[in-house]
Write a protein that binds this DNA or RNA. Structure first.
Lengths: 112, 112
DNA sequence: CTATATGCATAGAATGTCAATGTATATAGT
DNA sequence: ACTATATACATTGACATTCTATGCATATAG
């Protein structure tokens, strides 16, 4: 089977959306997205961690380490910020608009 | 005003869709897409021509030169091939599916 | 004489994503 | 004993895509 048909520049919206219902650690996000999408979107570490770090640098998320029982790897939790929430709102609108735009291109004029 | 909110990997589907209703030359495609999208998507030459050439290399389009009246620049017309039509069909399905997938991520479980 | 429009095109930079790899530990299977 | 898989972080380097800037050539408008 094939895997990611491509996130297509929507990584920010995907990650921030996932964090909207509570703080999560990286690995947890990938599992959650995989479950939600029936394994259609399997985030790779090479995409995930750079993207998460970028979000933090932009102030859309903040993070903190959480120790596990000894022997288990620590977890780095990410939490969405107020700016992040604003960005989600904007990106959702852009996405909706883009769906309409693509619809007009793909199916022609009569689309709204 | 801002311009392209990003074609985000949909250039192939955009161009092939535009060619579905008849052969067009490059410049014409940009004008047509701009009109259809109320200037939301303004294809740049640096994106357009490499993409058109790629489509041709992949056998999804074919092209031919058309001379204009003397003094006017010639036009290079692109025509979609049968393989191109098949690709449009596949890409449309992928796009629809991707809309659903993104919906589940953005708005949560209850989405179809 | 400058900008804008028509029409093609490329070079180089920036960006985004992925495959591959690395570090650790734990458990399950053969 | 060995191997695979799962958990958890992360980086490197390659590749693909898109954009900015530029170039050529002509014509018209301001």
């Amino acid at each position: 089977m094939f895997v990611n048909n491509g996130i297509k520049g929507n990584m920010t919206l995907i990650l921030l959306s996932s964090l909207m219902d509570g703080e999560k650690y990286g690995y947890e996000i990938t599992k959650e997205i995989a479950r939600l999408t029936n394994d259609e979107i399997l985030l790779k570490e090479g995409s995930l961690y750079p993207a998460l770090h970028k979000l933090e640098k932009e102030g859309l998320t903040e993070s903190f380490w959480q120790q596990q029982e000894p022997g288990k790897p620590g977890r780095k939790y990410y939490r969405i910020t107020d700016n992040g929430r604003k960005t989600v709102e904007e990106e959702r609108k852009k996405w909706s608009s883009f769906i309409g735009t693509m619809g007009r291109i793909i199916y022609g004029e009569q689309n709204s």
